[in-house]
Design a protein around this nucleic acid. Structure first.
Length: 377
DNA sequence: TTGGATT
């Protein structure tokens, strides 16, 4: 029934993506792709996961390419057999695909055939996952955990072993550095049931895994839609109409466009082309330069500083992709500094030239490209 | 007075 699918859809919408939007790439490919194959193994069709009352026609499709439309999805899955309904899940606000969807077949045999023929299919940079959708229910909502402080050498299998004592794991993942492929010590565990996730937090949060030097942090994962909201915010601040927005009029006085341009030319030392060619040389590092942009260190923020103030201060200078206020774990107050990542060198340099020495409240900010002083050779 | 990591 259509209603049944819609109910399932709503649940997943509220719940966030099961593993939607997950990059199935990375240099090693091992961690993320094994996420899928492991999942395939534990989620595949079979009596252990498909109880008799579950739907045998309704499938969940994960890791869809960002650009894939519902129509393309219908076309692909319709090639297997007659589809009762097909739904691509999109962000409520932006309409962007969340990278997963549902296909409900008329005939259970076609659902089975879709799993056997389309699961693992490579589409663009993604390897899609096709499996039976669990029935929608409140008990499976909010069962996703975020885990940090993992030993860098812990494998996904070991992560699952650690958590499996608390319940059935639906998905697991360890995030890896995009360049080196090394674990970031951060991962996700989705349990079948929320109560299992709660028990895992009670049992594992703040505990040291066997053989580990540091305790892990286990908490409920954020709703992925937050990231979309942040991206929206970034877009707002990057759009010309918002470049000098009303609330910033006091800063606009200081950062008038002609001044900005003068400063930009005053501090400009490299063309983007030069930067790119320099940073591509092995062993050469440019302060602030990261794979994703230019990282800026902001010092002397007040304990009350939040991300919003960083967006407000840096957004007018150009494309800001990320801001971060560093907070004390216990008090949640700002530790006095933060980071801002900007896409373009010129805009970052302009922001630094303009904001270094800027008085925010009763504090004088120090703003510079982030250095790597504690970097180990 | 240069982090933590949110698929």
């Amino acid at each position: 029934m259509v209603t049944q699918v819609l109910t399932a859809m709503d649940t997943h919408l509220a719940n966030g993506s099961v593993c939607g939007g997950g990059a199935v790439n990375g240099p090693s490919g091992s961690s993320s792709s094994s996420a899928c194959s492991l999942l395939g193994a534990s989620m595949g069709p079979g009596p252990s996961v498909q109880s008799s009352e579950d739907s045998k026609t309704n499938l969940i499709v994960n890791y869809l390419p960002q650009t894939m439309t519902q129509e393309e999805m219908r076309s692909l899955f319709g090639s297997i057999g007659e589809i009762e309904s097909c739904k691509l899940i999109r962000d409520k606000i932006t309409g962007q695909s969340l990278g997963y969807g549902f296909v409900n077949y008329v005939d259970p045999k076609d659902a089975e055939k879709a799993i056997s023929t389309l699961n693992g299919l490579r589409l663009q940079t993604k390897t899609i996952k096709v499996s039976y959708a669990r029935p929608s229910s409140a008990s499976i909502r909010d069962a996703n955990l975020y885990v940090s402080g993992l030993p860098k050498n812990m494998s996904q299998k070991e992560l699952e072993q650690l958590f499996s004592q608390y319940g059935r794991i639906i998905t697991s993942r360890i995030l890896v550095d995009q360049v080196t492929g090394v674990s970031r010590g951060v991962g996700f565990i989705r349990f079948d049931k929320r109560i299992e996730a709660e028990e895992a937090i009670k049992g594992l949060n703040g505990q040291k895994p066997p053989g580990a030097a540091e305790p892990v942090t286990v908490k409920f994962a954020n709703n992925p839609s937050q990231k979309t909201s942040q991206a929206l915010l970034a877009q707002l601040y990057q759009s010309p109409i918002r470049r000098y927005p009303g609330p910033l009029h006091h800063q606009a006085q200081r950062f008038r466009l002609d001044n900005l341009l003068n400063m930009a030319y005053g501090v400009k030392r490299f063309s983007p082309l030069t930067i790119d060619s320099v940073t591509s040389l092995a062993g050469v590092t440019i302060p602030g330069h990261t794979g994703t942009g230019w990282c800026i260190f902001v010092y002397n923020l007040s304990p009350e500083a939040d991300e919003g103030i960083l967006w407000q201060m840096f957004g007018p200078f150009g494309a800001v992709t990320n801001v971060k206020v560093i907070r004390d774990f216990a008090t949640n107050k700002c530790k006095g500094f933060g980071f801002v990542t900007m896409t373009n060198y010129d805009e970052a340099a302009m922001a630094i030239a303009s904001l270094n020495g800027y008085r925010l409240g009763d504090r004088v900010l120090q703003v510079s490209f982030k250095t790597n002083k504690n970097h180990k050779a």
